[in-house]
Nucleic acid binder design. Structure first.
Lengths: 331, 331
DNA sequence: GCGCCAGCTGGAAAGGTTACCAGGAAACGT
DNA sequence: ACGTTTCCTGGTAACCTTTCCAGCTGGCGC
């Protein structure tokens, strides 16, 4: 159906090897011959078959895989966008796969991707054990974890500085006079745990203390669950003067619950989200650089593909506190 | 490096063909033999090489390609998520590529993808000519366009009903007593043109007329540009009582510009966006079903891959008016 | 002028899989 | 009991590309 090198060779009346050399820009071919073959390539509309190319031994395909939970989360969308861009610049395509936080689905997806002989795997891991990846890594498929490390295997990882970011949030609230702070914590594993820890520690270092009765651990990380928890907190006899939400979705839920009482309660959230500055009361956020995370992951992968074999790298990206004036106590 | 069928055959002491049959679930193999081979597969950790598999004649790879402009746009993110999910269910992986609205980049990306012998292409096309795709389609790679049709080639397309959706928006505003309506139009080609047309026609059908001096065509589709244009409209001696924004980003810019005057001016926007209901004044939107668009595109592609060869399909998905109470005139 | 080297070209093998063909054994019918 | 059919298995070719090797030609040095 599609023209092959053989077709081009026949059209140009040359050998197969010569066509290959021209296609790959091998300098060991005379200008006249190059021109003749190129004409045949154009005439036949030949396009090199990357698949056939990468079944050769030692050859690794020029495709990376990105496996993540939810593309609808703007953080992951930005991450994916950056990863695709950087990979594309290096001549790599990106196979996108989703696992929706389901360990079994993740494992199935990895199996699919490995079957396609991707040159490297980028994974936003869930809390399950990732020892099952060891044979793949051993067989030469490098793996990079994003946003959170994985248990059961040692591999490169790119995370943001959850603790420091949360500490910044805590200090921001303290500086604005808050002592009674409610916290909504998403049911995640690594990131939210770190965020709570960093927040708590910063308070302690400031001579303050987090009131555990004001910390709500949610069963699901949805805005609705957060809204319910925050409403509950605000209904207390002695409600908190500020809320810290550990994820973007939770912040949105908090905004929902604070409707009409925006000026009584301050809100700081982890993860920036679009429109945060347009809300009735602008929300101060701790922003992680999703694009940098995606870029760094690709770079790590490319280095491993190129043969780098040192110990696992751990990249910790800084966060940025974006103050949007939600700190003052108005009540 | 990685175990191959030959390794499995050697381990099990059987022929290559038998291994292939077991791997592919061919029923013409005795249970005893199946078990023996399966044991060897498990022992060697064999995984079928999809690349080698798909270079065979007639065989098409089990990979689809999705080429879009901006993954950061929540509409496209939802679309991509749905497409990946549906494709995955059918055993297809999705190669994600971005073109950032640049015709040259798009063409380069398509070339890359075709080189990887994807079984089908999903493209969110920009305004350039797409005749260059004709040879690919002829050579058996089906193409589906999403969100907007492409010129220069006949292919399946999935769009939303831009005109009817905008007409709904117009009727909504009329029903709430608006006659002086400002419109911000993004510099896009197909969608925004349709939206403006549908909006204008609905007004005319209601015996009203769109004042062209209140229609602002933007050079860029950013929130900032929209904010500037809306601010300009609101600064008129006789400002509009309502704004219609033709895209989600433009709506957000309008919200920005309307700050502090939310209760004087109504806002209706095309495209739903997160947090629209949390804004100072909830924004009524015309929502297209991005997920349905992605799903339908994959389905069309799979049908074509399966051999369907009729004329091009044109799927027009309905929109939904989500009223969030922004219609009343408060001034 | 002859030999040698460099430069260029052609051919063949390999890589992992599938499809097809042939062959062997067992079972069944007569 | 013999022939035939069915069931199962093994081997081989083909897919498209790259790599390696061999061979050829022309040029240059001595």
């Amino acid at each position: 159906m599609r023209p092959t090198m053989t077709d081009v060779a026949a059209a140009a009346g040359v050998g197969l090897g010569t066509v290959s050399r021209v296609v790959n820009g091998d300098p060991a071919v005379s200008p006249a011959m190059r021109e003749r073959v190129q004409a045949a390539i154009d005439a036949t509309r030949y396009r090199r078959n990357e698949l056939a190319r990468s079944i050769r031994p030692g050859q690794t395909s020029t495709t990376l895989a990105l496996l993540l939970g939810d593309l609808t989360n703007p953080f992951y969308a930005r991450m994916a966008k950056a990863a695709v861009a950087v990979a594309g610049d290096a001549g790599y395509a990106v196979l996108l796969s989703t696992a929706d936080e389901d360990p079994a689905a993740e494992q199935r997806a990895v199996s699919e991707l490995v079957g396609r002989r991707v040159a490297g795997l980028m994974i936003v891991p869930d809390q399950g054990d990732h020892a099952y990846l060891a044979p793949e890594v051993e067989l030469g498929t490098p793996v990079v974890f994003l946003d959170r490390p994985a248990t059961g295997i040692e591999a490169d990882v790119v995370v943001i500085d959850n603790e420091r970011g949360s500490a910044d949030a805590a200090r921001h609230l303290i500086a604005h006079g808050h002592h009674r702070i409610g916290v909504v914590v998403a049911p995640s594993y690594y990131t939210t745990g770190r965020r709570l820890r960093g927040f708590r520690r910063a308070l302690r270092e400031a001579g303050d203390q987090l009131d555990n009765s004001l910390v709500r651990h949610l069963d699901v990380g949805s805005a609705e669950a957060s809204a319910a928890a925050v409403a509950d907190l605000l209904a207390l006899p002695d409600p908190p003067t500020a809320i810290f939400a550990t994820t973007g979705f939770l912040s949105q839920g908090a905004v929902l619950a604070m409707r009409g009482r925006e000026h009584e309660v301050a809100l700081v959230g982890f993860d920036d989200f679009p429109l945060a500055e347009l809300l009735p009361v602008p929300v101060t956020v701790v922003a992680g650089d999703a694009a940098a995370m995606g870029e760094q992951a690709v770079r790590l992968l490319l280095a491993r593909i190129a043969g780098e074999s040192g110990p696992a790298h751990r990249t910790v990206l800084p966060t940025r506190l974006i103050e949007r004036g939600s700190g003052e106590i108005h009540a």
